[in-house]
């Protein structure tokens, strides 16, 4: 019963967040002007622009436009029609989602695996040269902007070595470079997080007890300390995944990856209201839902968290 109340409370909060996000997104685009002039050719007259604006409903008050947009989503599941593509927004997003999901999953998978290994090694060898090296890698990984890393990969791996294509989509070889570029940041973040929480765990009493029992160091680290160091990592991973699905904007542009991120950038550049709003709303929804799931997962994973 307490779980049900907890869930209802979280759901209500999630709803408030979504409404807030939708309002902010809508107003941000609305306040900076409508796309009528951008959609018509430069030699259109003021009358033609005005007629077009009226026909598209751009001259209605913002409340009317907002309610019309939200109303269609809630009542019909209709996200509207993209102004630039002239096609349903839902269809466009569905088309691009697999590419972004694939990139996100692969980037997250390798960055998590490598991050765990590096973080664990660094924690165990705390203060040593290996630790220094890992920390240097992790720091650079988080400091290097993704567009710069992406271009470097293109110039050296694609152009100099000719190992992989500069961009595109469809085969495994197209996936490697964008996944590396996108995952580098998360790999570094995971490394640092695993290192920090493992170091903390290794100082706990139960680890001393485990060692005192005469367990091998490997068993102490993996079975006892690492398991407890997992919780903050899980939270952060979930957040990363949500943010990745929201769009790996820069990576997708550098590598010409046909995903949601590129769609979002185009939508914003073209002031494609229905498309831009829906993508941001979707990204927010993914965040909110992921957060909710993490909260629930916590309760399951960690009996110390009481409702």
């Amino acid at each position: 019963m307490r779980l049900a109340a907890f869930l209802a409370h979280r759901l209500a909060l999630a709803l408030v967040v979504l409404v807030g996000v939708s309002l902010v997104v809508f107003l941000c685009l609305f306040l900076t002007g409508d796309p009528a002039a951008l959609m018509l050719p430069p030699d259109a007259t003021r009358d033609e622009i005005q007629r077009f604006r009226a026909a598209m409903g751009f001259d209605d008050p913002w409340v009317v436009q907002y309610l019309r947009w939200i109303g269609r989503i809630v009542l019909d599941g209709d996200f509207g029609t993209s102004l630039r593509f002239g096609r349903p927004v839902g269809e466009l997003i569905r088309e691009r989602l697999p590419a972004t999901a694939l990139l996100a999953v692969v980037a997250l998978a390798w960055s998590t695996a490598v991050g765990f290994v590096l973080g664990t090694i660094a924690a165990v060898r705390r203060g040593g040269f290996v630790d220094f090296l890992v920390r240097a890698i992790a720091l650079s990984g988080q400091a290097i902007p993704v567009f710069w890393l992406g271009l470097l990969l293109i110039l050296f791996v694609s152009l100099r070595l000719r190992w992989l294509p500069t961009g595109g989509y469809g085969e495994a070889r197209h996936l490697v470079l964008p996944a590396i570029a996108l995952g580098a940041y998360y790999m570094s973040a995971v490394t640092r997080l695993v290192r920090a929480s493992l170091i903390e765990a290794l100082d706990q009493d139960y680890v001393r007890t485990a060692r005192a029992k005469g367990l091998s160091e490997w068993r102490v680290v993996v079975r006892h300390a690492l398991r407890n160091a997992l919780i903050p990592v899980v939270t952060v991973q979930a957040m990363y995944f949500a943010s990745l699905l929201g769009g790996a904007l820069v990576t997708e542009i550098v590598f010409a990856w046909p995903g949601i991120g590129r769609l979002a950038v185009q939508a914003i550049q073209n002031r494609d209201f229905p498309l831009a709003q829906s993508i941001v709303l979707l990204a927010a929804a993914v965040f909110v839902v992921t957060n909710l799931l993490v909260d629930i997962l916590y309760v399951v994973l960690n009996p110390r968290i009481r409702l």
Binding site: F147, T166, I253, A256
Partner: peptide, 17 residues
Amino acid sequence: RPIPEATARIAALLSGE
């Protein structure tokens, strides 16, 4: 092929893609 980033476009030309 759409290649939005200019440097990537030039790399694609130089690599023969």
